[in-house]
Amino acid sequence: MRLKSRGNVSVTRIGNVLGNGMDLRSGTPLWVTLALAVVALLGSHFLTVYREGKKSRQEREKAWRTSCQILIKEIVDDATKHYCDSTSLGAATDLSAAKINNNLKRLGALAREISAVEPSHSADLGRLLRLLRDVVTSPADYQMPNRELRRAADHMFTEISECESALISNLKKARK
C-alpha cells in the first residue's frame, strides 16, 4: 500500500509541473506527445521547402519561356528585315547576318537549358531549331550584299512563321 501511495504522489507532481494539457493520467505517454510535435514541425518545414521550391521552379520556367520567346521574335524580325528592307543591303549585310547567326546560336543554348519531360519533345525542339536556322540562313543569297529584296508574300516568310509557331508551341510543353 505504501508503494502505491508513493506512485500516486509522483504522478500528480509531474502532472502539476507539465500543466493541465500534458496530464499524464490521460493515457498518452509523454514521448509520443513530444514525437508527434517534432513530426508535425518537420512535416510543416519540408512542406514549406517543397512549396517554395516548386514556386521558384515555376518562376524560373516562366522567365526562361519568356526569354526564348523574345529571342525567337527578334530572330524572325531581323530575318524579315534582312530579306525585305533595303537598309540591310550592301555593307550592312555582314552585320545583319552576324546578328541573326549569333541569336540563332544563343537560342539553341537557351532553349536547351530546361529539358522537356518527354524526350520526344526535346528531339522536336532540336529539329525545329535547326529548321529555323536552315530556313533563314541557308538560301544562296543570305549573305550576298547585292541580293534582291523579297516580297512579304515570299514563301520563305510563311516557312519562318510556321517554324516560329511550332517552336513557341513546343516551349509550352511540360518541362522538368
Binding site: A97, A98, I100, N101, N102, N103, L104, K105, R106, R133, D134, T137, S138, P139, A140, Y142, Q143
Partner: peptide, 10 residues
C-alpha cells in the same frame, strides 16, 4: 564563334 549560317556549314 559568333555563330554559323547553314550555308557556311553546307
Amino acid at each position: 564563334s559568333a555563330g554559323y549560317s547553314s550555308g557556311f556549314l553546307d
